[in-house]
């Protein structure tokens, strides 16, 4: 194997890992925001599925990819509103209602697909958007700067969200409410507004994650996400509720997936052990966390409904 070929394969593997990481990243950024405000949402996968179908169907009808992304986000926002209402106003237990949302999304996306589309039809995905100048660099250019626009959006959201969480009043409120809603409330911060907005935006991101997936793949089918939403939830814990952390988590998971794929392609892993190799992303994620986890602490008020004076 020549050096240049080896370099090419490594570049392709990393680029592949970045693509695989993108839906995880979008969904876990959203989940992290919600959890920072103290609300757990186990329904991410269901929201992703509805967002994915909505985006796919919109593109199928209009051939407008951006409209597809908007529809995905919009559906996420809607479910977010609903989820906020039942968890914040009705104090529904967050773990169970999240599972309810998951089942609803799983079934409803499939039902709508069967009723409105039926036989799978492809849509044309985004063409790779080559960033001028940067994409021209050898190796790095191909690895990082020849992706579809969704990938850039996802990674751009990481510093944006860090900024919002740490440098704005709103971010301060979100974190304060996640830690101690009573104290925040007594200081005049609206717990309801902050949590509502965090949940709605978080679900919007989950919807976007689903839309990104469907549009990237150019297709929808039953259970398209294949439980990605649950992995995204896990990655929030990996990333210790920080945008940078969940980005690292998503990249670790995605890259290990792509490395395993590449190894299987080249027969480095014998076929008899191919299932064992498929465990690698999950195992390495756990091990990586074992090494660094000691210092993490979750938002104190996570999953606790807030009742004024109660």
């Amino acid at each position: 194997m020549s050096d240049s070929f080896a370099v090419m394969i490594i570049v392709a593997t990393i680029a592949s890992g970045i693509r695989l990481a993108t839906p995880f990243l979008l969904a876990s950024l959203g989940e992290a925001l919600g959890q920072r405000s103290g609300v757990l949402n186990l329904g991410v996968d269901g929201v992703m599925l509805l967002g994915a179908f909505g985006a796919y169907y919109a593109v199928l009808q209009t051939s407008n990819l951006y409209l597809g992304l908007l529809v995905g986000i919009g559906l996420g926002l809607l479910i977010g509103l609903f989820y906020a209402f039942i968890t914040l106003n009705l104090h529904a237990e967050q773990g169970v209602s999240g599972i309810g949302i998951y089942l609803f999304g799983l079934g409803m996306s499939d039902l709508l697909f069967q009723k409105l589309v039926g036989t799978p039809r492809p849509i044309l995905p985004f063409m790779p958007l080559e960033i001028p100048v940067l994409s021209g660099f050898p190796i790095v250019g191909e690895m990082l700067f020849q992706h579809s626009i969704i990938v850039y959006i996802a990674f751009a959201l990481v510093p944006i969200m860090s900024f919002v969480l740490h440098r704005t009043t709103y971010g301060l409120n979100v974190r304060a409410i996640g830690e101690n809603p009573e104290a925040a409330d007594s200081l005049g911060v609206s717990v309801m507004f902050t949590r509502y907005s965090a949940i709605i935006i978080g679900n919007g991101l989950a919807g976007l994650a689903g839309a990104a997936l469907a549009i990237e793949l150019g297709i929808f089918q039953q259970n398209l996400t294949n439980a990605m939403g649950f992995i995204a939830i896990a990655l929030v814990y990996f990333g210790a509720w920080s945008p940078k952390g969940v980005m690292i988590g998503s990249l670790v998971f995605g890259l290990v997936q792509s490395i395993v794929l590449q190894c299987k392609t080249f027969g480095v892993i014998p076929r008899s052990a191919s299932d064992l190799a498929s465990m690698a992303p999950a195992i390495i994620t756990i091990l990586a966390l074992v090494v660094v986890a000691k210092r993490f602490k979750q938002p104190s008020a996570l999953t606790k409904p807030y009742v004024r004076g109660g």
């Binding site: 592949s16 695989l20 839906p23 793949l217 294949n226 997936q257 794929l261 392609t265």
Partner: peptide
């Protein structure tokens, strides 16, 4: 896993 199949 549709996404993984695409990357494969």
């Amino acid at each position: 896993d549709v996404a993984l199949a695409a990357e494969a």
